[in-house]
């Protein structure tokens, strides 16, 4: 890691003690078809959403999906930089970051390539829903930080970002909800995987001997319009398996709509009560 003159000096590398005694996960599903945390393969974790958590931001949202904790704040619409040309449509900028303590290994402070890729995916999902033609010459900034990553951080971030945009009063066609599914072997799906269950390339040969289908699919959906706005797929998936997984993610994301709606309603009600 290059020495950063604006931060305290750190050693070149350090070892995570947990990596020295790895708890080898033999099977993702035990004999009673239960996962490591006691859920069944088609069971999602409970979601908690709250708007208005960051007092300084125009709009913000905090999302907890099991142990995964995400905070999103939205600023805008504000002026674009003066050097940029006149544009009829507004612009969204999205910055996604894992906190250094959110994953099992300490992460650096400078955003790396995986974070840049996820920022792009979230941007794609949000661009589909925000009515940018209402905000010419303007910039809307979305900042997301993952405080704890226990799987499905990307889908939690997309849902939180969309609710934060709604909290900020930015016009959208629909709120964006998102869900993930892990595939291992033909016909084995795990809904809403935790970080242990998430796909890693090195797990490729270990499970369901010989079957080629291993991966993680995340889908972002516009629930009332029933339109998919972003798909992120990692790993080896045959076409029909991919299609089946996308359909599964879509129905999961559809189920999140009620929770998202309830969150927005309660935040509006509490603002009403504060003003009254």
């Amino acid at each position: 890691m290059a020495t950063d003159s604006r931060r305290l000096a750190v050693p070149q590398s350090s070892l995570d003690p947990k990596s020295l005694c790895p708890a080898k996960v033999e099977r993702l599903l035990n004999d009673e078809e239960q996962r490591l945390d006691g859920r069944y393969s088609s069971e999602s974790r409970g979601i908690y959403l709250q708007c208005g958590t960051v007092s300084q931001a125009k709009g913000s949202c905090y999302c907890e999906l099991g142990n995964t904790k995400v905070v999103c704040s939205v600023y805008g619409p504000k002026d674009v930089e003066h050097y940029e040309d006149f544009q009829m449509e507004g612009k969204i900028k999205c910055e996604f970051k894992y906190a250094p303590f959110s994953c099992s290994k300490h992460r650096g402070h400078i955003p790396d390539l995986s974070e840049a890729e996820i920022s792009d995916v979230i941007l794609q999902a949000l661009t589909a829903s925000v009515r940018l033609q209402c905000y010419p010459k303007s910039l809307i900034e979305v900042f997301i930080i993952v405080l704890e990553n226990d799987g499905s951080a990307v889908s939690a971030s997309i849902t939180a970002a969309s609710l934060a945009l709604a909290d900020a009063g930015i016009e959208q066609y629909d709120i964006v909800t998102s869900a993930s599914v892990r595939v291992y072997g033909n016909g084995n799906f795990l809904e809403d995987p935790t970080s242990v269950e998430e796909y890693r390339p090195q797990d490729f040969d270990s499970e369901s001997g010989g079957d080629l289908n291993h991966g993680l699919v995340t889908v972002a959906l516009l629930p009332t319009l029933n339109q998919v706005c972003a798909v992120l797929s990692n790993g080896h998936l045959e076409c029909d398996v991919l299609v089946e997984t996308i359909q599964m993610c879509t129905s999961l994301a559809q189920n999140l709509y009620t929770a998202a709606r309830k969150c927005l309603l309660s935040s509006v009600k509490s603002v009403d009560q504060n003003n009254a």
Partner: peptide, 8 residues
């Protein structure tokens, strides 16, 4: 958040 790791 405090991460404890091992190093030289």
């Amino acid at each position: 958040g405090i991460k404890a790791e091992l190093t030289e």
